[in-house]
Write a protein that binds this DNA or RNA. Structure first.
Length: 364
DNA sequence: AAATGCGACAACCGCATTATC
DNA sequence: CGATAATGCGGTTGTCGCATT
């Protein structure tokens, strides 16, 4: 039983849009708006296009005030910070970058930023297609993985792990490697994850006291997927940039930071931006990492990878694991207080975040 | 000069969610 | 309140152009 198609694929044109089609669509929407019905729109203006295709074309290309290319360092900064924090929620990330579309950001991440941060070239798509007989997540391949595992059926289970989660683990570990190199790890003063603040107002996004937050949540996911019977350690290839330690053993099964008696928490900050700079807390290291200012000197990635504590609600209650758990927590935990102007997340220290800040402005 | 590899971007596909009847 | 339609979203694929062999 297949899903009913949204349009008649036999009569609908596919592929790149012509300037004439663009002009028709833009002229109509400029004059009449979308009319609230994308499905009917192409028929109204005589376009042989699927309504979804029209919508996508409008949102990603024709809509006013769209910026293409030339991401600024600040934008990269925001993308990386948010990706580490929330994963591939491209629409949410896009909402923090006026004029950018989720598609643009997604493409930019996949083609540039990911390589910049993970430090390895992605195999070409052709190569990936050629290797389809032995499916393996890209990020795992990029990590040089696939050769050794003590978890038995690891190749199969690893293949099931989302690449987003693995990438975030990699980013997490790279940053932790940096922190170790800077001596943060040895001082029992865990570094903070980036504190993101939207560029336009005083509302902040995420930071995590005692660090390690949401990316660590992916470790929980990885742990569960690699071995449902928790408590074990896993041989796992160390991701990009760590190739020289590719046989390192990572102890994912130590109930993470709990062993250290550290309850990681999510907190949000309402600290305002200062003088055009980002109020990113300890994100300087991330910034330097992004722009390779300290990589060469780091002598980095020695001393092992610190434990990765799980993420908890501010009350120490629900442990936040994978993306889904984060969503669930965001939606359900009692720090999430409805207000008349939209949802508001109550944060540690009395700060708060209006969730409507994440509303996309597509129709403006 | 032709073939191949690769990066970048646009567009498509299908599932999830939301709105409407 | 359930069914259906519309929309939103993220992952994936197609295509083009440049670089390299």
């Amino acid at each position: 039983m297949g899903r009913a198609p949204c349009c008649d694929k036999a009569t609908v044109k596919k592929g790149p849009w012509s300037p004439e089609e663009d002009a028709k669509l833009k002229a109509y929407i400029d004059e009449n708006g979308t009319g609230g019905n994308w499905i009917a729109l192409p028929q109204k203006i005589g376009l042989k296009r699927c309504g979804k295709s029209c919508r996508l074309r409008w949102l990603n290309y024709l809509r006013p005030n769209i910026k293409h290319g030339d991401f600024t360092e600040e934008e990269e900064h925001i993308i990386c910070s948010l990706y580490i924090s929330i994963g591939s929620r491209w629409s949410i990330i896009a909402a923090q970058l006026p004029g950018r579309t989720d598609n643009d950001i997604k493409n930019y991440w996949n083609t540039k930023l990911k390589k910049k941060l993970l430090g390895k070239r992605a195999p070409s798509r052709r190569l990936q297609r050629a290797n389809q007989d032995a499916p393996m997540p890209y990020s795992y391949l990029a990590a040089g993985g696939g050769s050794a595992s003590s978890s038995g059926n690891a190749s199969g289970t690893t293949a099931a792990l989302s690449s987003s989660a693995l990438e975030r683990i990699q980013l997490h570990m790279r940053l932790q490697g940096l922190y170790s190199a800077f001596g943060c790890g040895a001082s029992n003063a865990p570094p903070q994850w980036p504190k993101l603040e939207p560029p336009t107002d005083a509302v902040a996004m995420t930071t995590v006291s005692h660090g390690h937050s949401l990316a660590a949540a992916d470790v929980v996911e990885a742990e569960q997927q690699l071995n449902p019977s928790a408590g074990a350690s896993y041989d796992m290839p160390v991701p990009g940039g760590f190739e020289e330690r590719s046989a390192s053993k990572l102890g994912f099964g130590s109930a993470a930071g709990e062993a250290a008696g550290v309850a990681s928490t999510v907190e949000m900050s309402s600290a305002s931006m200062v003088g055009g700079g980002f109020g990113y807390g300890h994100v300087d290291e991330l910034y330097d990492f992004l722009y390779s200012k300290q990589l060469a000197a780091a002598g980095a990635f020695q001393g092992g990878v610190p434990p990765l504590p799980e993420l908890q609600c501010p009350d120490g209650g629900a442990v936040v694991g994978a993306d889904e758990k984060f969503s669930t927590w965001m939606a359900s935990c009692d720090h999430y207080v409805p207000t008349t102007g939209g949802q508001q997340l109550q944060l540690q220290g009395g700060n708060s975040m209006n969730l409507q800040d994440f509303v996309l402005g597509y129709d403006q």
